[in-house]
């Protein structure tokens, strides 16, 4: 993946310590198998362009501007530089207001991760002080940041030589779990079942490995492309699909006991047939 251009530039601040930083998203929209849009008739690439909605004329890229709708079809053009002067310090400074113990923020609040690095040699040491002190105290920092035309709470967590900045969801963006979970029973806490299930978990526990997030579909697409390339005429006809079958589920406690025992008997390796 090509290194992205910095997505946000600004300052990281702890009390009177300030350093220049830049940030980029930790995730990308890039696909492993990258498609282009073609014109079916000509096989040429299809490109998008903007035309003026009134005159129908093509608009040059440098004439594209952000418009704030102040009335119906009445737009005030705002330049990106002007947006910089919005009167919120969080538009350009991540000022760490608070620290909370690591791993105390529920995962459900984490929205999107970004990588934060010092952007100028002058701030290398200040950046390192903030990072290392958080690491030593086993805390993460909480601040505010204007990103994507919103001001969000963010969480800063040391990660190797850098810092990961997570945007956090607003309070009303996470549905109340009680509404979903309150009716769930405690279940039958049969100690025998419990010991079977914990044995099963132990047996199938593995260290985290990025191989766990490989995409079988992209591999398959590559195969399809390869076979089409080889036989451009024949084309690769997809195989007919089988019927979606509903599996039988494990109902009562007796079923559970025997299913768990069977699980432990079958050779582990994580993959069930």
């Amino acid at each position: 993946m090509a290194p992205p251009r910095p997505y946000w530039k600004g300052y990281l601040k702890l009390s009177l310590v300030t350093c220049p930083v830049s940030m980029m998203p930790a995730t990308s929209e890039s696909e492993k198998v990258r498609f282009h849009t073609l014109n079916r008739k000509t096989n040429n690439r299809v490109v998008s362009r903007y035309v003026d909605a009134e005159t129908g004329k093509v608009v040059d890229e440098e004439d594209e501007a952000k418009g704030y709708e102040r009335g119906e079809n009445d737009f005030l053009v705002i330049e990106d530089e002007e947006l910089q002067s919005v009167a919120l310090e969080s538009a350009r400074t991540i000022d760490i207001e608070k620290f909370v113990p690591r791993n105390t923020i529920e995962w459900v609040w984490l929205e999107k991760p970004h990588y934060l690095s010092p952007s100028d040699e002058v701030g290398h040491e200040a950046f390192s002080v903030i990072r290392d002190a958080m690491e030593a105290e086993k805390v993460v920092g909480i601040s505010r940041l204007v990103i994507g035309r919103r001001e969000r709470a963010v969480m800063l967590e040391p990660c190797g030589k850098g810092i990961v900045v997570w945007t956090l969801r607003y309070g009303d963006e996470v549905r109340k779990p009680e509404n979903y979970f309150d009716d769930i029973g405690d279940g039958d806490n049969d100690p025998k079942l419990m010991s079977l299930v914990t044995s099963l978990i132990e047996e199938r526990s593995k260290p985290w490995n990025p191989d766990m997030v490989q995409d079988p579909v992209q591999e398959k697409l590559k195969e399809i492309i390869e076979s089409k390339r080889k036989s451009a005429k024949k084309g690769a006809k997809p195989k007919g699909k089988g019927k979606d079958e509903e599996p039988a589920y494990t109902g009562n406690v007796i079923d559970l006991m025997s299913a768990l025992k069977k699980s432990l008997e079958t050779k582990s390796g994580g993959k069930s047939k």
């Binding site: 035309v51 009134e54 005159t55 418009g67």
Partner: peptide, 9 residues
């Protein structure tokens, strides 16, 4: 918008 005309694109 089109900076030249102020119209939407």
């Amino acid at each position: 918008v089109n900076r030249e005309t102020g119209n939407r694109v």
